[in-house]
Protein backbone atom coordinates (compact mmCIF):
# COMPACT_ATOMS: atom_id res chain seq x y z
CA UNK A 1 0.00 0.00 0.00
CA UNK A 2 1.61 3.21 -1.14
CA UNK A 3 0.93 6.59 0.38
CA UNK A 4 0.20 8.20 -2.95
CA UNK A 5 -2.55 5.76 -3.69
CA UNK A 6 -3.85 6.32 -0.22
CA UNK A 7 -4.13 10.04 -0.83
CA UNK A 8 -5.82 9.48 -4.18
CA UNK A 9 -8.38 7.23 -2.54
CA UNK A 10 -8.95 9.73 0.27
CA UNK A 11 -9.55 12.59 -2.15
CA UNK A 12 -11.87 10.46 -4.22
CA UNK A 13 -13.99 9.64 -1.19
CA UNK A 14 -14.21 13.24 -0.08
CA UNK A 15 -15.39 14.37 -3.47
CA UNK A 16 -17.84 11.52 -3.82
CA UNK A 17 -19.48 12.49 -0.56
CA UNK A 18 -22.77 14.26 -1.11
CA UNK A 19 -22.07 17.92 -0.46
CA UNK A 20 -24.62 19.54 1.80
CA UNK A 21 -27.08 21.66 -0.09
CA UNK A 22 -26.40 25.34 0.24
CA UNK A 23 -29.66 27.14 -0.16
CA UNK A 24 -29.45 30.65 -1.43
CA UNK A 25 -31.05 33.52 0.41
CA UNK A 26 -30.99 34.69 3.97
CA UNK A 27 -29.51 32.59 6.69
CA UNK A 28 -30.49 32.48 10.32
CA UNK A 29 -27.81 31.26 12.71
CA UNK A 30 -29.28 29.71 15.81
CA UNK A 31 -27.21 28.54 18.76
CA UNK A 32 -29.22 26.41 21.13
CA UNK A 33 -28.98 23.61 23.68
CA UNK A 34 -27.93 20.41 21.99
CA UNK A 35 -31.11 18.72 23.18
CA UNK A 36 -33.38 21.34 21.61
CA UNK A 37 -32.78 20.79 17.92
CA UNK A 38 -35.83 19.89 15.87
CA UNK A 39 -34.78 19.58 12.21
CA UNK A 40 -38.27 18.94 10.86
CA UNK A 41 -39.67 21.99 12.56
CA UNK A 42 -36.80 24.16 11.38
CA UNK A 43 -37.45 22.95 7.81
CA UNK A 44 -41.06 24.00 8.16
CA UNK A 45 -39.88 27.46 9.15
CA UNK A 46 -37.63 27.55 6.09
CA UNK A 47 -40.55 26.67 3.86
CA UNK A 48 -42.80 29.32 5.34
CA UNK A 49 -40.30 32.16 5.33
CA UNK A 50 -37.56 31.24 2.88
CA UNK A 51 -35.00 31.84 5.60
CA UNK A 52 -32.44 29.06 5.90
CA UNK A 53 -31.82 27.91 9.46
CA UNK A 54 -28.27 26.98 10.40
CA UNK A 55 -28.16 25.17 13.72
CA UNK A 56 -25.24 25.06 16.08
CA UNK A 57 -25.42 23.50 19.51
CA UNK A 58 -23.76 23.91 22.89
CA UNK A 59 -23.71 21.71 25.93
CA UNK A 60 -23.22 24.27 28.67
CA UNK A 61 -24.22 27.84 29.44
CA UNK A 62 -20.56 28.64 29.95
CA UNK A 63 -19.73 27.72 26.38
CA UNK A 64 -22.59 29.89 25.18
CA UNK A 65 -21.35 32.82 27.24
CA UNK A 66 -17.72 32.44 26.19
CA UNK A 67 -18.72 32.39 22.53
CA UNK A 68 -21.06 35.35 22.76
CA UNK A 69 -18.37 37.29 24.59
CA UNK A 70 -15.96 36.46 21.80
CA UNK A 71 -18.38 38.05 19.37
CA UNK A 72 -19.98 34.91 17.94
CA UNK A 73 -22.54 36.24 15.47
CA UNK A 74 -25.59 34.16 16.29
CA UNK A 75 -29.14 35.34 15.77
CA UNK A 76 -31.02 33.24 18.32
CA UNK A 77 -29.73 31.66 21.54
CA UNK A 78 -31.37 29.71 24.36
CA UNK A 79 -29.75 30.52 27.73
CA UNK A 80 -30.92 29.07 31.04
CA UNK A 81 -32.69 31.46 33.38
CA UNK A 82 -29.92 31.48 35.95
CA UNK A 83 -27.44 32.74 33.34
CA UNK A 84 -29.66 35.49 31.99
CA UNK A 85 -28.52 38.09 34.58
CA UNK A 86 -24.90 37.45 33.57
CA UNK A 87 -25.62 37.80 29.88
CA UNK A 88 -27.56 41.00 30.52
CA UNK A 89 -24.83 42.41 32.76
CA UNK A 90 -22.25 41.72 30.04
CA UNK A 91 -24.54 43.47 27.52
CA UNK A 92 -24.67 40.39 25.32
CA UNK A 93 -28.43 40.41 24.66
CA UNK A 94 -30.65 42.87 22.86
CA UNK A 95 -34.07 44.01 24.00
CA UNK A 96 -37.07 42.18 22.62
CA UNK A 97 -39.77 44.04 20.66
CA UNK A 98 -43.20 44.43 22.22
CA UNK A 99 -44.96 42.03 19.87
CA UNK A 100 -42.71 39.24 21.08
CA UNK A 101 -43.21 40.23 24.70
CA UNK A 102 -46.94 39.88 24.14
CA UNK A 103 -46.52 36.12 23.68
CA UNK A 104 -45.75 35.87 27.39
CA UNK A 105 -49.41 36.16 28.30
CA UNK A 106 -50.02 32.75 26.68
CA UNK A 107 -47.50 31.10 28.94
CA UNK A 108 -48.12 28.72 31.78
CA UNK A 109 -48.05 30.12 35.30
CA UNK A 110 -44.84 28.35 36.31
CA UNK A 111 -42.77 30.47 33.93
CA UNK A 112 -44.61 33.78 34.06
CA UNK A 113 -42.73 36.82 35.36
CA UNK A 114 -39.50 34.91 36.09
CA UNK A 115 -37.42 36.79 38.63
CA UNK A 116 -34.38 36.88 36.31
CA UNK A 117 -36.34 38.97 33.79
CA UNK A 118 -39.88 39.68 35.02
CA UNK A 119 -40.73 42.12 32.22
CA UNK A 120 -39.40 39.88 29.40
CA UNK A 121 -37.06 42.68 28.41
CA UNK A 122 -34.43 40.29 27.08
CA UNK A 123 -35.72 36.74 27.12
CA UNK A 124 -38.86 34.68 26.57
CA UNK A 125 -39.28 31.34 28.35
CA UNK A 126 -39.07 28.37 25.98
CA UNK A 127 -38.97 25.17 28.02
CA UNK A 128 -39.10 24.45 31.70
CA UNK A 129 -38.54 21.35 33.70
CA UNK A 130 -37.90 19.86 37.09
CA UNK A 131 -35.12 17.99 38.83
CA UNK A 132 -36.66 15.17 40.81
CA UNK A 133 -36.04 11.56 41.72
CA UNK A 134 -36.28 8.53 39.45
CA UNK A 135 -37.00 5.33 41.35
CA UNK A 136 -36.65 1.83 39.98
CA UNK A 137 -39.46 0.00 41.78
CA UNK A 138 -37.99 -3.39 40.94
CA UNK A 139 -34.65 -2.66 42.58
CA UNK A 140 -35.79 -0.87 45.71
CA UNK A 141 -38.80 -0.80 47.99
CA UNK A 142 -38.22 2.86 48.77
CA UNK A 143 -40.75 5.27 47.35
CA UNK A 144 -38.41 8.22 47.06
CA UNK A 145 -40.67 10.12 49.42
CA UNK A 146 -37.93 12.42 50.65
CA UNK A 147 -34.57 13.83 49.61
CA UNK A 148 -33.34 13.26 53.13
CA UNK A 149 -33.72 9.53 52.57
CA UNK A 150 -31.87 9.89 49.27
CA UNK A 151 -28.87 11.46 50.98
CA UNK A 152 -28.81 9.56 54.26
CA UNK A 153 -28.44 5.93 53.31
CA UNK A 154 -28.72 2.99 55.70
CA UNK A 155 -25.37 1.70 56.92
CA UNK A 156 -23.99 -1.31 55.05
CA UNK A 157 -25.96 -0.69 51.86
CA UNK A 158 -24.16 -1.32 48.55
CA UNK A 159 -23.44 1.81 46.45
CA UNK A 160 -26.76 2.32 44.73
CA UNK A 161 -27.67 5.94 44.20
CA UNK A 162 -26.92 8.13 41.21
CA UNK A 163 -26.19 11.84 41.61
CA UNK A 164 -26.10 14.35 38.75
CA UNK A 165 -22.70 15.99 38.41
CA UNK A 166 -24.16 19.30 37.38
CA UNK A 167 -22.92 21.10 40.48
CA UNK A 168 -25.58 23.81 40.57
CA UNK A 169 -28.33 21.20 40.32
CA UNK A 170 -26.79 18.87 42.90
CA UNK A 171 -26.34 21.74 45.36
CA UNK A 172 -29.91 22.93 44.87
CA UNK A 173 -31.20 19.45 45.62
CA UNK A 174 -28.93 19.12 48.66
CA UNK A 175 -30.21 22.51 49.84
CA UNK A 176 -33.77 21.23 49.51
CA UNK A 177 -32.86 18.17 51.58
CA UNK A 178 -31.57 20.27 54.47
CA UNK A 179 -34.38 22.80 54.04
CA UNK A 180 -32.19 25.76 53.17
CA UNK A 181 -32.91 28.29 50.44
CA UNK A 182 -30.97 28.03 47.16
CA UNK A 183 -27.63 29.87 47.08
CA UNK A 184 -27.75 30.42 50.85
CA UNK A 185 -24.60 32.37 51.64
CA UNK A 186 -23.76 31.37 55.21
CA UNK A 187 -20.81 29.27 56.45
CA UNK A 188 -23.18 27.06 58.44
CA UNK A 189 -25.13 26.08 55.36
CA UNK A 190 -21.94 25.31 53.45
CA UNK A 191 -20.76 23.04 56.25
CA UNK A 192 -24.13 21.30 56.46
CA UNK A 193 -24.20 20.71 52.69
CA UNK A 194 -20.65 19.41 52.68
CA UNK A 195 -21.33 17.03 55.56
CA UNK A 196 -24.48 15.75 53.85
CA UNK A 197 -22.73 15.02 50.56
CA UNK A 198 -19.65 13.47 52.13
CA UNK A 199 -21.82 11.18 54.22
CA UNK A 200 -23.65 10.05 51.12
CA UNK A 201 -20.54 9.40 49.05
CA UNK A 202 -19.86 5.76 50.09
CA UNK A 203 -23.35 4.88 48.88
CA UNK A 204 -23.11 6.68 45.54
CA UNK A 205 -22.69 4.45 42.53
CA UNK A 206 -22.08 7.19 39.97
CA UNK A 207 -21.71 10.96 39.92
CA UNK A 208 -22.53 11.85 36.36
CA UNK A 209 -24.99 13.15 33.86
CA UNK A 210 -23.55 11.76 30.63
CA UNK A 211 -25.31 8.49 29.92
CA UNK A 212 -27.45 8.35 33.04
CA UNK A 213 -30.58 8.00 30.94
CA UNK A 214 -29.18 4.73 29.57
CA UNK A 215 -28.23 3.58 33.07
CA UNK A 216 -31.78 4.21 34.21
CA UNK A 217 -33.26 2.42 31.24
CA UNK A 218 -30.96 -0.55 31.71
CA UNK A 219 -32.08 -0.88 35.32
CA UNK A 220 -28.68 -0.32 36.84
CA UNK A 221 -29.60 2.34 39.37
CA UNK A 222 -32.28 2.04 42.06
CA UNK A 223 -32.43 5.74 42.94
CA UNK A 224 -31.28 8.50 40.60
CA UNK A 225 -31.48 12.27 40.85
CA UNK A 226 -32.92 13.05 37.42
CA UNK A 227 -34.22 15.70 35.06
CA UNK A 228 -37.84 15.12 34.11
CA UNK A 229 -37.29 14.86 30.35
CA UNK A 230 -34.63 12.18 30.73
CA UNK A 231 -36.70 10.28 33.28
CA UNK A 232 -39.56 10.26 30.76
CA UNK A 233 -37.29 8.97 28.01
CA UNK A 234 -35.90 6.21 30.24
CA UNK A 235 -39.38 5.16 31.34
CA UNK A 236 -40.37 4.52 27.71
CA UNK A 237 -37.81 1.72 27.79
CA UNK A 238 -38.18 0.52 31.34
CA UNK A 239 -41.62 0.39 32.91
CA UNK A 240 -40.25 -0.22 36.41
CA UNK A 241 -39.18 3.41 36.59
CA UNK A 242 -41.15 6.03 38.42
CA UNK A 243 -40.52 9.78 38.56
CA UNK A 244 -41.35 11.20 41.97
CA UNK A 245 -41.51 14.61 43.58
CA UNK A 246 -39.94 14.24 47.07
CA UNK A 247 -41.62 15.97 50.00
CA UNK A 248 -38.98 18.71 50.32
CA UNK A 249 -39.72 19.78 46.76
CA UNK A 250 -38.03 19.91 43.37
CA UNK A 251 -35.80 22.31 41.53
CA UNK A 252 -37.43 24.07 38.60
CA UNK A 253 -35.37 25.49 35.75
CA UNK A 254 -36.33 27.52 32.70
CA UNK A 255 -34.54 27.88 29.36
CA UNK A 256 -35.30 30.88 27.21
CA UNK A 257 -35.14 32.34 23.74
CA UNK A 258 -33.03 35.47 23.38
CA UNK A 259 -31.46 37.54 20.61
CA UNK A 260 -27.76 38.35 21.05
CA UNK A 261 -26.67 41.97 20.92
CA UNK A 262 -24.58 41.45 17.81
CA UNK A 263 -27.11 39.38 15.85
CA UNK A 264 -26.76 40.05 12.15
CA UNK A 265 -30.27 39.04 11.25
CA UNK A 266 -32.46 40.24 14.12
CA UNK A 267 -35.62 40.43 12.01
CA UNK A 268 -35.35 36.80 11.03
CA UNK A 269 -34.62 35.99 14.66
CA UNK A 270 -37.86 37.65 15.72
CA UNK A 271 -39.78 35.77 13.06
CA UNK A 272 -38.17 32.52 14.21
CA UNK A 273 -39.00 33.02 17.88
CA UNK A 274 -42.61 33.89 17.22
CA UNK A 275 -42.87 30.90 14.88
CA UNK A 276 -41.42 28.54 17.45
CA UNK A 277 -43.72 29.78 20.19
CA UNK A 278 -46.94 29.29 18.18
CA UNK A 279 -48.87 26.58 20.05
CA UNK A 280 -48.81 23.95 17.29
CA UNK A 281 -45.09 24.46 16.66
CA UNK A 282 -44.26 24.68 20.34
CA UNK A 283 -46.05 21.36 20.83
CA UNK A 284 -44.01 19.76 18.07
CA UNK A 285 -40.81 21.18 19.54
CA UNK A 286 -41.90 19.92 22.93
CA UNK A 287 -42.30 16.39 21.57
CA UNK A 288 -38.98 16.49 19.72
CA UNK A 289 -37.06 17.70 22.77
CA UNK A 290 -39.07 15.78 25.36
CA UNK A 291 -39.59 18.93 27.40
CA UNK A 292 -42.44 20.94 28.84
CA UNK A 293 -43.27 23.93 26.68
CA UNK A 294 -43.76 27.33 28.25
CA UNK A 295 -46.80 27.86 26.03
CA UNK A 296 -49.97 26.79 27.82
CA UNK A 297 -51.93 25.92 24.70
CA UNK A 298 -49.06 23.77 23.40
CA UNK A 299 -49.36 21.40 26.29
CA UNK A 300 -52.99 20.71 25.31
CA UNK A 301 -51.77 19.50 21.91
CA UNK A 302 -49.36 16.90 23.23
CA UNK A 303 -50.03 13.19 22.71
CA UNK A 304 -51.97 11.55 25.49
CA UNK A 305 -49.08 9.69 27.09
CA UNK A 306 -47.04 12.86 27.42
CA UNK A 307 -50.04 14.74 28.75
CA UNK A 308 -50.58 12.10 31.43
CA UNK A 309 -46.89 11.53 32.21
CA UNK A 310 -45.99 12.22 35.85
CA UNK A 311 -42.74 13.69 34.55
CA UNK A 312 -44.61 16.51 32.87
CA UNK A 313 -47.23 17.16 35.54
CA UNK A 314 -46.07 18.80 38.72
CA UNK A 315 -48.61 17.67 41.36
CA UNK A 316 -50.64 20.37 43.12
CA UNK A 317 -48.94 21.54 46.27
CA UNK A 318 -45.40 20.46 45.30
CA UNK A 319 -42.76 22.75 46.73
CA UNK A 320 -40.85 24.25 43.81
CA UNK A 321 -37.65 26.25 43.95
CA UNK A 322 -36.52 28.09 40.87
CA UNK A 323 -32.82 27.68 39.99
CA UNK A 324 -30.98 30.94 40.42
CA UNK A 325 -27.71 32.57 39.56
CA UNK A 326 -25.74 32.19 42.78
CA UNK A 327 -23.42 35.03 43.82
CA UNK A 328 -19.70 34.51 43.28
CA UNK A 329 -18.91 33.62 46.92
CA UNK A 330 -21.51 30.86 46.88
CA UNK A 331 -20.20 29.52 43.57
CA UNK A 332 -16.75 29.48 45.15
CA UNK A 333 -17.97 27.59 48.19
CA UNK A 334 -19.91 25.10 46.05
CA UNK A 335 -16.82 24.45 43.92
CA UNK A 336 -14.83 23.81 47.06
CA UNK A 337 -17.45 21.41 48.39
CA UNK A 338 -17.52 19.53 45.10
CA UNK A 339 -13.72 19.37 44.83
CA UNK A 340 -13.53 18.05 48.36
CA UNK A 341 -16.25 15.51 47.59
CA UNK A 342 -14.48 14.10 44.54
CA UNK A 343 -10.89 14.60 45.59
Amino acid sequence: MKIKSFIIAALAIIFLCPTAAHAAGKKLYIYIWDTYTAPKLFKKFEKETGIKVVTDVYSSNDTLMAKLKAGGAYDVVAPSGNYVPFLVAEKLLQQLPDDLKAIAKDMTKSVQKPDYDPEYTYVLPLFYGTTGLAVNTKLTKETGASWQQFFERPAGEKPSVGVLDDIGTAMDIASLAVKKPFCDNTPETFKTLQALLLKQKPFVKVYGSTGYTERLAAGEIPLQMAWNGDAYKARQQNKDLKYVYPAEGVEVWVDNFAIPANAKNADAAKAFISFMLKPENAAEHSIAAGMMSSIKAANELLPEDMKQAPEFNIPEGTVTGVAQACPAEVVDAYSKIWSELTR
Binding site: S60, D166, I167, K205, G208, S335, S339, T342, R343
Partner: peptide, 17 residues
Amino acid sequence: GGKQMMLGNLIQLQFGF
Protein backbone atom coordinates in the same frame (compact mmCIF):
# COMPACT_ATOMS: atom_id res chain seq x y z
CA GLY B 1 -18.21 6.86 38.02
CA GLY B 2 -16.96 10.41 38.56
CA LYS B 3 -16.01 9.71 42.17
CA GLN B 4 -12.40 10.81 41.92
CA MET B 5 -11.44 14.01 40.25
CA MET B 6 -8.59 14.10 37.77
CA LEU B 7 -6.55 17.14 36.89
CA GLY B 8 -8.54 17.41 33.67
CA ASN B 9 -11.81 17.60 35.60
CA LEU B 10 -10.39 20.14 38.01
CA ILE B 11 -9.31 22.50 35.25
CA GLN B 12 -12.52 21.94 33.30
CA LEU B 13 -14.45 22.88 36.42
CA GLN B 14 -12.72 26.25 36.65
CA PHE B 15 -13.78 27.23 33.15
CA GLY B 16 -17.28 25.89 33.74
CA PHE B 17 -19.28 26.06 36.95
